[in-house]
Amino acid sequence: MYSKVVMDHFKTPRNVGEMKDADGMGEVGNPVCGDMMNIYIKVEDDHIKDISFLTFGCGAAIAVSSMLTDIAKGKTIEEAKKITNKSVAEALEGLPKNKLHCSNLGADALQLAIKDYEDRKAGKVRPPARPEDRHEHTHGESCKCPYCNGDVNAGLEFCSHCGKEMNDSH
């Protein structure tokens, strides 16, 4: 299913770990969607001197994180800003279609980390993470059917009132 490069980065991921003294941090995703990624950067002389990641996710998500940190390491901030999901996916010699979102996640996390670094440098205070960003539905909370407004049972893939298919956007 995965390319050799993906499996290599999955099995022996580079740059794993939290960075306590990071100059910038980017966090994307959440467990509801199945993956979550943190990217930490240390910047010196406008270069990404060090970079690391923590990832909750599938093989592709871990490989993307590893490859991304490898690519970004040593780059100038301006160069790092040009790293896209496409360049990461290409470096991994492709990802299965249903895993392309993993590469988006990686690129987004890096850009957020860079923005965080620049904001801190400019003296901006980061807004605290909004609770509504964490879309963590737990058992017991009921969602409303977007079609008929009936209570949606989390166990069903369709609304038991009107029969419409449920999707992740509920």
């Binding site: 467990p31 509801v32 249903n98 963590e136 737990t138 058992h139 989390a154 999707n167």
Partner: peptide, 17 residues
């Protein structure tokens, strides 16, 4: 390949993670 966690596990009270 589904986009959401198993309906069975959510039904027995597991959270998404």
């Amino acid at each position: 390949g589904a986009l959401r966690a198993s309906h069975v596990l959510l039904s027995v009270g597991r959270d998404y993670a």
